[in-house]
Structures are given as C-alpha cells and as structure tokens.
Nucleic acid binder design. Structure first.
Length: 600
RNA sequence: GCCCCCGUAGCUCAAUGGACAGAGCACCGGACUUCUAAUCCGAUGGUUGUGGGUUCGAGUCCCGCCGGGGGCGCCA
C-alpha cells in the first residue's frame, strides 16, 4: 500500500548499514506490525546481528545487538517521509504510518479500484488449472464437489493475482467402469431412462451399482450363478473390445449415455458458476498417447518388455537413486492398450504445446500423489522444461462418518442432494430471520447462501487435509461459515442503501476507534493475501482472510454508529469505510466462488 | 520393506523460522425500543504426540521413535 515510501526507506537503511559495516540483506522482510492501535510495518534485526557475529567470528548477545542496530536505524530514519514515527523495540524496527493519511489512502484506493482492488500485475505467465474430472456414467458426488470448488477458487485466485489462466476439465469418459454401465443399460434398461437431467444422471449411477453387484463374485454362489456371472462379464469385456474397435452400435450407445452425464455435469457447473475453457476427454487422448510411448522407447527412457511384459520406465534407475522413490511406472499394457499414465503424458504434452502453458496445476486427490510424481518426472526425463512447474494440488479425499465413499457399493453422498438440503435449510432460516422478503428474493437468498455455506465448508480446510463429510457441519450457518461472511456484506449493503448516495468527500482526520482501525487494517491486507494464496496455491488462505475481514466488520458494525454518527464529517468517512468494506468482502467472496448478496 | 500426508484446547481446524500459539463448535455469563441478533461482548480451555539436533529464536527446519491415513508393474 505504501510501497513507494517503503522503497525509499530501504535505500536509506542500506546506506546506513553499509556505512556502519553491518551486513546488508538481499531483501527486506517487512511484516505488518502486531496491531496496537496504529498501523505500521516492522523489520526484525536479529538475522543481521547474527550474520554480523558470524562474520566477525565471535559470540555476541544477538538480541541486544539487534536492538542496538534497530535503535541506530530508528535515529537515522527519524523524519522519513510517509511515516509518523519510528521506534526500536526488542530488536525490531517499527515504523508507523500517519493514521489519517493511511486510512484515507486505503479506503480511497479501494473505492477507486472497485472490483479490481487487489488484482495483481500481469505475471506474463500462463497457467492451466485442471479440475472437474468426474467419470461419466456416474453421478456427481460430494468428493467431486470439493474438487470442483477447490479448482475454481484456485483458478480465480491465480487469475486475479496476475496469471493468464485457463480452466480445464478432464472427464473420464471411457474405461471398464463406463462400459459396465453401457452393458447393463443395453441388456436390461434400454429406453427406460427417467426424465430430468439430474434424475437421469443419478439413474446411471444406480445402474452402475446394480451391475457391479451382478458382476462381483460371491462366496456362496451356486455353479449356475457363477456361470451366469462369468457370461455377463464376458459380454462386458466384449463390449469394451467393440468400443475400442470403433463398433458403430457401441459407439452410438456410448455417445448417447455419455451425453446424459455431461449434461448433468454442465448443469452442476453452471449452478456453481464454473465456466470451463477447455474440455479434454480421456477418450480423445487415448490415440496420441501411444505415439509417445514409441518415442520414449526410442530414446531409451522406456523399456519395452512386450509381448511378455508391459512397457515400463524405471524412474529411480534413470535418476540414479538408491532408494525406491518414484519406482517403476508402467506406461503401456503388454497388449498395447494405453493406461491412465499414458494418457496423462499425452495430455501434458498437449497442454504445453497446443496451449503454451508455463505452469500446470492438477487438482486431484492425494491418493494419486505417486502417479503425478511419476508423470512429472517422466516429462522431465523427456525434456520438458515446464515439468518443473507442474504441480499436483493434492487434496484430502472426502469420506463419510461410516467410511470411504464407494460408487461401486452405492455408498456415497450426491452433491445435488446436499445442495437441495442446504437450500431448504437456508430458506427456513431466511423466512424466520427476514420475513419481509419476496418469494423470488427468498429463493435467490436460499440458493446463494446455501451454496455459500457449502463452498466455505470445503475451502476453509487446508487442501492436504481429509474431510469427513457431515451434513450438520457442512451446512452450518453459525460462526466461521460462508453465511457469516455473506451477512457482513448484507449489513454493509443495508447501511449504504439507507444512506443513499455516497458523500463525494471523506477524511479520516478524527480520532478513529479501535474498530475502525482494525477494519481498515484488514482491508489493506487484501492484495497481499491474494498474492500469498496464489503463490501457495491455497484458497484456504483467502478463506481465512475473508472470515477475519467479516469479523472486523461485524465488530465495527456493532460498536460504531454510521448513519447516526456524531458529525457529518465522521458520517461521510464511515460511509466510505463501509463502502470499501463491502467492496473487499465482495472481492474476497468472489475468489471463494461465493455470491455476495445484498439481502438475506 | 519403501514413499507421501497428518498429529496443536473436549471436538473441528488456523498460525511467510520472529513479538503473548489463535479461531469456530460445545459449555457458562451478558447485550435486541437501535444501521437486520445469520450479530456482538466476556469467561473457561495448551508440556503444539515423543526424544534429540540446528538457530539469537522452532508448532514450523533436520534425525530417530510412537500413533493415524494413503500409496507402491500392466485400475482410474
């Protein structure tokens, strides 16, 4: 926020350190001052003191020496422009901003930049985020939801931070699981599909569950049952072979049912306000992937053991590692058909070459960590520079209190069911809290706040942590939740609505209360939080920030009168502050894929 | 056997190697004639699994151990 003044200051500090023969750091690590009623930044001098002692080769009392340096700097910098006063405290150099000017600048900048406040300068790099990779012929469950919302939030964060961003979806539209559904549909259920996009999508899942039960060996089965099961399984495998051979009947059946799943997926993504730029389908990268294997063999990276064995890459051996770390990857079956890994190599190549991406992020659950380490290493061995900037955003998978979800066993929680329940609950709460809303408004509130609760429940947990999905917790609207943050936005909107037009002028030259100072402090941090969340690929950082900002606003709202301020001047300033808070809340919520409502 | 993730308040989780380890839930006590109480204020709650090491400084980095989860040649 005060980067210009900060830079001038750093030059002065460097000069003074040099003059006093104290080590000069490459970069200064400024940290916001722990809040004490005034804003400022601070610098720890311990590293310099320690470095100095090491250079001199003698033992010194580092904290004392740090304090000495801080005091020297404080004296030297006295009166620096842009700062009200400067102190040396316990080895830290603390610089304070002039209160009125700081508040003015923070609030003024926000109101001027609006929805762009916090947007980072262009990084000149293109990033592709791959997420939303559900299998077709299933239905979208709560685990897919975590994936989608995490990927979308990350996309919005990196885009806002300054990356040219491409959103990619990679549905698994082929494989034995898909064929299983095709088989049972064709044999027993053809033409019996229900009406309705979601009903039909979920119906495919029911077929999958039933088929899995029919095809799974049972310990107590009779010889007749066993024969029947094996006959069915043979039919299923024959169907996969026919698909592979391009059989028109199987292909047509596949395309029709696949479209049902994709329709449901598109409907859900639309509901979540997710707009995918590029669709990759597994069935599309199947062909090109085989050419890659040939190249890897020709270059001596892969070993062809066909026909007795598959095509493999001994990654540890290639890297000269003694321990098993990347292990051996199988990149082609002995019968010449491609694998998951083969397809991911082909897809990565396409991302680099066709879409010119510099960085590639894969939002996939952490059970596939080894898979992606193998993919990235093979890409590196193959010679792709961008492989070093490939990142697997491994998030913990979502399970249920009764154990892991299992599509095969039909033990899963569907996203749509949870979303419907969320909307119902919020509709009831809204009717109770705010009876004056029109039915149309109520529906909109129920939808956006219900989905907001769900999104926040997913994003407020760090990626690497597993989530045990419990309805009560996920749909909570008390405390640290989406609705809490949305409510702060509603309250700000309400004040502004009642105030009418925003005063053209506002100055913060009156004694600010702690609540105002804290709120302004939070507002000023938003741009750096955007950068941090993007650098670390962690939407949770933004989720934590949004909550803290909302807390600061709620406390302010409760304690500080705005419309009934003591004087017109304070009223004007506070209205500007409320407008700024509303703006930043909206910006933060947008990055969390949560709608910022004006009423609720 | 090897690799990865995790272990912080009763529970669920935070904390760029920096100042006093913080929130929510739950529990207890307060605040609606007010800009919407989906809120606020306060109280209670900790040997950061454990033993070493590095550092001026460790919840954070390194090594060992214990406990939980996941993964490891032709599933995705």
């Amino acid at each position: 926020m005060f980067t210009h003044e900060q830079r001038l200051l750093e030059d002065k500090i460097r000069a003074w350190l040099q003059a006093n023969e104290i080590p000069v750091p490459d970069a200064f690590k400024w940290v916001p001052l722990p809040f004490s009623g005034e804003w400022g930044i601070s610098l720890a001098l311990f590293p310099l003191a320690a470095q100095e002692a090491r250079r001199a080769g003698k033992r010194v009392n580092v904290p004392a020496r740090a304090q000495e340096i801080a005091a020297g700097l404080a004296e030297h910098l006295e009166g620096a422009p842009g700062f009200s006063h400067i102190e040396a405290v316990r080895g830290y150099l603390n610089l304070y901003f002039p209160t009125a000017a700081y508040a003015q600048r923070v609030v003024g900048t926000i109101l001027k930049q609006g929805a762009d406040f916090g947007r980072g300068d262009s990084k000149g790099e293109r990033i592709m985020v791959e997420y939303a990779q559900p299998n077709t012929h299933h239905s979208f469950h709560i685990g897919h939801y975590r994936n989608a919302i995490l990927g979308e939030s990350l996309s919005r964060v990196v885009e806002f931070a300054g990356f040219d961003t491409i959103r990619a979806s990679y549905p698994g539209d082929i494989g034995l699981g898909v064929i299983t559904v095709l088989w049972i549909y064709d044999k027993f259920y053809k033409g019996q599909e229900p009406e309705g996009i979601h009903e039909r999508g979920q119906w495919l899942l029911k077929l999958y569950v039933e088929a899995s039960r029919m095809l799974e060996p049972r310990p107590d089965e009779t010889p007749e049952e066993k024969a029947q099961r094996e006959a069915w399984d043979a039919e299923r495998r024959e169907m996969l072979r026919r698909w592979d051979a391009g059989d028109p009947y199987v292909r047509a059946l596949w395309e029709e049912t696949r479209e049902w799943s994709l329709e449901e997926l598109r409907a859900i993504l639309e509901m979540l306000d997710i707009h995918i730029d590029v669709w990759f389908f597994e069935s599309e990268v199947d062909g090109p992937s085989k050419a890659i294997v040939d190249e890897l063999i020709a270059r001596g990276i892969a070993i062809d053991e066909r026909p007795e064995g598959p095509v493999i890459v001994r990654i540890d051996e290639q890297l000269g590692l003694k321990k098993e770390k990347y292990r051996t990857a199988v990149i082609l079956r002995s019968d010449g058909t491609s694998l998951y890994l083969t397809k991911d190599l082909a897809l990565a190549k396409r991302k680099f070459e066709q879409y010119g991406v510099d960085r590639s992020v894969y939002v996939v659950d952490n059970r596939q960590s080894l898979h992606f380490r193998q993919v990235f290493k093979i890409l590196e061995l193959w010679g792709f520079e961008q492989a070093k900037k490939c990142y697997h955003l491994a998030y913990g998978f979502v399970s249920l209190p009764e154990g892991a979800m299992s599509a095969r066993r039909g033990r899963l929680v569907l996203f749509k069911d949870v979303a419907d329940e969320a909307v119902n609950r919020i509709r009831r709460v809204s009717a109770e809290k705010n009876p004056d809303l029109s039915p149309a408004e109520r529906e909109e509130v129920a939808r956006t706040v219900g989905l907001g609760a769900m999104a926040y429940a997913m994003l407020s947990v760090d990626n690497n942590r597993d989530i045990v999905f419990e309805m009560e917790r996920a749909l909570s609207y008390d405390g640290r939740t989406g609705p809490y943050i949305q409510n702060a936005h509603v309250r700000a909107s309400s004040i502004l609505r009642k105030a009418g037009d925003l005063p053209s002028q506002a100055a913060f030259d009156y004694p600010l209360s702690d609540h105002e100072v804290t709120l302004i402090d939070q507002l000023s941090r938003f741009p750096s939080v955007v950068q941090q969340a993007a650098e670390e690929y962690r939407p949770m950082v933004m989720a934590a920030y949004a909550y803290e900002l909302a807390t600061a606003f709620h406390a302010f709202y409760h304690a500080v009168p705005v419309l009934q301020s003591e004087t017109p001047d304070t009223r004007a300033a506070r209205l500007h502050l409320v407008a700024a808070a509303r703006q930043v809340l909206a910006n933060a919520l947008r990055l969390l894929v949560i709608h910022a409502p004006d009423v609720m």
